[in-house]
Computed example of a mutant assay.
Amino acid sequence: MNLTRTAFGTWNGGRFMHFGEQLDETQFLDLIRHSYEQGIRTFVSSDVYGAGRADSMLGEALKDAPRDSYCLVGLLGHDFYGGVRAGAKGYPRFTEPGLREPSDYSSYLKMACEKSLERCQASHFDLVMLHNPDVTGYTSETVWDGLRELKQLGLTQRLGLAPGPANGFTLDIIDCFEKFGADIDWAMLILNPFEPWPGTLALPAAKKHDIDVIARVVDYGGIFHDDVKPGHHFRDGDHRTYRGPDWIEHGCEKLEKLRPIAEKHGLTMLQLASFWDLAQDSVKSVVPTLVQEAYEGAKPINDKVAELAGLPETNPLTPEDIAFINSIGDNTGCMKLKGASERHIGTDPRPDEWAIRDELLAVAGRWNLGNSWAW
């Protein structure tokens, strides 16, 4: 089964990532089941969330659902089996020097995939995505040999790329599409009406290489759920506190400018954001973050599931609507981006940032992205 227009991620509900009110185990299982009952049919999990616990809970929640009634997406890439967690930075990538030699990449991926499937109570994934790769993951033929082997073994039907965790990696993504596009069925990109940059820069390359895109952070940190308002207080540790000052106020100001479009078409603000994403070239699925905000009177998370599941069949947004949304949401150059950058000095790459290479500047030239890449 291929991915459907709407998807559920096991990072929802703050259970395995810090945002909003953390659902307890029973609430989280109920949330997954409620999403399935509402009609969501794509479920995305990463093996590293909760060091396997997210997989196990997804498998438990869906154990009575026919396997051919939903699409199962697994993300692999962080080694929590042999790696040591580095605080908030999380577990290292399996390609980190010191953990294993390149000759062992394939055996690691096979082991990690099989264990993830066992926890999910499934015999195969419909899609396996390389999760938050380092520079080796983007460029190594050996890594992609290991991913191809998963497909050959029947452990997955499709392969994909899921960059992150922060925004950026644009040149790395396009370069990866050019190198391994024949193997890549899906890519997961941060994309929403208030963060079109830099995600949209990779869309022409995705289209050229026949790669479908699943958009994440569709909700823009909860702004499009319409219950994060000016003065909103985040709990300690909420991962949205990394955003710049006044982003809520500015986001809400822009949201009000878009509200007449949503009302004209009978859409919620989340549905408006989802349809904007789905109107972009190659975007075929949306996986917003579903948050139970931690204040009395906040919108219930099950209502957010219903909004996503109830996305109308036909996209009502007109070209004029899209152009207006684009004029409001343009965020070009608003942040420092991760991945290859002229800002990075030195030869030793960090897990999420590394030096630019001449071949990536050539990529930028081929795709009319400028001669300088210092974001």
Rank of each mutant, 00 (worst) to 15 (best):
F8S: 01
G9H: 01
W11G: 10
N12K: 01
R15K: 14
F16V: 00
H18L: 11
H18C: 02
G20W: 07
L23A: 01
D24C: 07
E25S: 06
F28L: 00
F28V: 04
I32D: 01
H34M: 05
S35Y: 05
T42Q: 01
T42A: 04
F43D: 07
F43L: 05
S45Q: 09
A51D: 13
G52N: 04
S56F: 04
E60K: 12
A61V: 10
K63F: 12
K63G: 06
D64Q: 14
D68G: 10
L72K: 01
G77E: 04
H78N: 12
F80I: 03
A86S: 10
G90Q: 00
Y91K: 03
L99V: 02
R100Q: 08
P102K: 03
P102G: 09
S103R: 12
D104E: 15
D104W: 09
Y108L: 07
L109T: 02
K110D: 08
K110Q: 11
M111I: 02
L117P: 04
Q121D: 14
H124Y: 13
L127V: 12
L147G: 01
L147M: 14
E149N: 10
L150I: 08
L150G: 05
Q152E: 11
Q152N: 13
T156K: 04
G160H: 05
P163Y: 03
N167E: 13
F169C: 05
D175S: 14
D183A: 13
N192D: 09
G199N: 04
L203E: 00
P204T: 02
K207V: 13
D210F: 12
I211F: 02
G221Y: 03
F224P: 07
H225C: 09
D226F: 04
D227N: 15
V228T: 08
D238G: 09
R240D: 01
T241H: 06
Y242R: 15
P245I: 10
D246T: 09
W247A: 05
K254R: 15
K257A: 07
L258W: 00
R259G: 00
A262Y: 00
K264S: 13
H265W: 08
T268P: 05
M269I: 08
L272A: 09
S274H: 00
W276Q: 05
Q280S: 11
D281R: 10
S282Y: 12
S282F: 06
V283P: 04
T289L: 13
L290V: 01
Y295K: 03
E296W: 13
P300I: 12
K304D: 09
A309G: 10
P312L: 06
P312R: 09
E313T: 14
N315Q: 07
T318R: 07
I322Y: 04
I322L: 15
I325G: 06
N326R: 12
N326C: 06
T332D: 12
K338E: 14
R343Q: 15
R343L: 15
D348N: 14
I356K: 03
L360M: 05
L361K: 09
L361D: 08
G365Y: 08
N371S: 14
